[in-house]
Amino acid sequence: MPHVVAAAALGHSAQHRAVDFRDFLAEIDGQTEPGLAVHVICDSLSAHKAPVVHTWLLAHLRFTLHFTPTYSSWINQIERWFAKLQRRCLERGVFCSLDDLKTAIDEWIKIWNEAARPFKRTRTADQIIDRICHYCDRISGQHT
């Protein structure tokens, strides 16, 4: 079944977050072909777990929610993906037309999707300390 992917950033109105999110899902549902599966990338906002959203999702089984890691902004994940696109597809490319550029991006995305996997951030304590020392050197000119 073909897929549609949606991402949402909602405001911080405590009273309306869950209802706003449900309304966002309903809007996507109304604008998307009935035969498509819909995958929605969500941050860790608790509105996604509210009863009003849960009830709506049970009635709309083509929707699947995917959550970014806790304490990780979804926008950082998107920025990382675009950085990979830049480095691996665009940086040294020569595109003589907009159609050439679109074709190159579409081909890269197709290759990316064939082997796609979640981003994982793992660092050893030594790597973290080295990174902090490097940062301190840059901002102060001396090792801290």
Rank of each mutant, 00 (worst) to 15 (best):
I111H: 13
C89N: 08
G35L: 08
D106C: 10
S46V: 10
W81T: 01
L57C: 09
D100G: 03
P51E: 10
A104F: 13
I75Y: 13
K84Q: 15
G93S: 07
A50V: 02
V94K: 07
A104V: 08
A18D: 02
T64Y: 03
N113D: 14
P51L: 13
L45W: 12
I75C: 06
D106L: 12
V94S: 08
H66V: 04
K49L: 11
K49S: 15
A83Y: 11
E79V: 03
E107M: 08
V19Q: 08
N76F: 15
L58R: 15
H12W: 06
R88T: 04
Q77G: 12
V94Q: 05
R92F: 13
R62S: 06
L90H: 07
H16T: 03
V40Q: 05
F63D: 08
L25M: 03
W81P: 00
P34W: 05
V38M: 09
G93Y: 12
D106Y: 05
L36N: 12
Q31N: 12
W81C: 07
S46L: 13
R117H: 14
A14G: 03
H60K: 06
W74S: 04
A104G: 04
D99Y: 05
H54F: 04
T103M: 10
V52A: 02
A14H: 10
A116W: 11
E27I: 00
P69R: 07
A115F: 11
V52S: 12
K110G: 08
I41N: 05
R92V: 00
I28F: 07
V53K: 03
G93Q: 05
G30K: 09
L36T: 09
E27N: 05
F82A: 01
E27Q: 10
L36A: 12
L61I: 05
W112N: 08
D20F: 10
F21R: 00
T103C: 15
L98T: 11
I111V: 14
R92C: 05
